[in-house]
């Protein structure tokens, strides 16, 4: 039995927020795909998994490379794979060549997930891999903040340096995505298509190209969230399965297709999971049911308010 003190709660809260930022980044990609293509990609977790492996192998091969370059390479690789997948498998859907679009979208992305997962098992094998720490924290020592190379204590609350680095990186990427969506021509084009395909086409935006862009960007965001996490968790080819589960929860909670919803939903899920797991008295059960808490939220949202926090009407 753990003592439930204010400090313990703060610890849970902060750890939840750190992981929540990553959930948010990943869900941002999924929600972008949904808002433009109108489908949920069941292969989202597999791109996350590939992103992590790219960073692992790049850093293993080029040991002197700055880890952020590896993250960018992971983003590029997952962007290209997403691009190819969209062109080959999802473009016919957008062109209306498929008889049962909703079923096709579910099954084809599921098939893609199946393929990518076993492809990685075949290539890298089933044994767990873990990348080295991206970089050391600077050593600071003040009254409220003490850091060493691997940990950080703020108000006496210890946090893992690895997770902090991952969360900060993810926050930077989220900001970049929001900036891209709000300020650039392409980002606005994506928003336009997500609001009204025909109206967007009238003003000269090609919805088909925007579909490809949205899917590739979405998979890139998934890849990059895997990329920042590969130094935190050990990596196996099926690591994407729970991860895609989390992003489903987040986008349903936040409202399918809503970007602020994805960010807020990610943070909420991170905190609720962390608090929920921390407050279950039996630590063995807590670890096992940590994922079930999120799934329970998910089921409740689907049943009570399927549009989520910021969702449009179905």
């Amino acid at each position: 039995m753990v003592d439930i003190t204010g400090q313990y709660m703060l610890n849970l809260l902060l750890n939840g927020l750190l992981i929540g930022v990553i959930y948010a980044l990943m869900a941002l990609g999924l929600t972008l795909i949904f808002s433009v293509l109108g489908i949920v990609s069941f292969a989202h977790g597999e791109f996350y998994m590939i992103g992590g492996y790219v960073v692992y192998f790049v850093l293993q091969r080029f040991t002197n490379l700055h880890p952020y370059f590896a993250v960018l390479i992971a983003g590029l690789v997952t962007f290209v794979i997403g691009f190819i997948a969209e062109r080959l498998l999802l473009q016919p859907l957008a062109k209306g060549e498929i008889e049962r679009p909703a079923e096709y979208a579910i099954l084809i992305t599921f098939g893609l997930a199946f393929f990518l997962q076993f492809l990685m098992i075949a290539i890298v094998g089933p044994f767990p891999k873990k990348a080295a720490r991206f970089f050391d924290l600077p050593e600071i020592s003040t009254d409220i903040l003490v850091t060493t190379a691997t940990t950080l204590r703020i108000f006496e609350v210890p946090l893992s340096g690895n997770r902090l680095i991952a969360a900060v990186t993810a926050a930077i990427l989220i900001s970049a995505t929001i900036f891209f969506m709000a300020k650039t021509w392409l980002g606005r084009g994506l928003q336009a298509v997500s609001q009204d395909r025909q109206a967007a086409a009238v003003v000269g935006i090609n919805p088909l190209k925007m579909n490809t862009l949205a899917f590739s960007l979405g998979t890139m965001l998934a890849g990059m969230s895997g990329a920042v996490l590969v130094a935190v968790f050990s990596w196996v080819p099926w690591v994407g399965v729970p991860a895609s589960g989390k992003s489903f929860i987040v986008i349903v909670l936040g409202g399918m297709g809503s970007m602020p919803g994805a960010v807020l939903g990610g943070l909420i899920l991170g905190v609720v999971e962390s608090l929920g797991a921390g407050l279950i008295p039996d630590p063995g059960r807590a670890l096992a049911y940590k994922d079930a808490i999120g799934l329970l939220i998910f089921a409740l949202v689907l049943l009570i308010k399927p549009t989520g926090l910021f969702g449009r009407d179905l």
Binding site: I39, V40, F42, L302
Partner: peptide, 10 residues
């Protein structure tokens, strides 16, 4: 469709 798939996976 999609929601059912998500729910049953969960």
């Amino acid at each position: 469709k999609t929601y059912l798939a998500l729910f049953t996976i969960a």
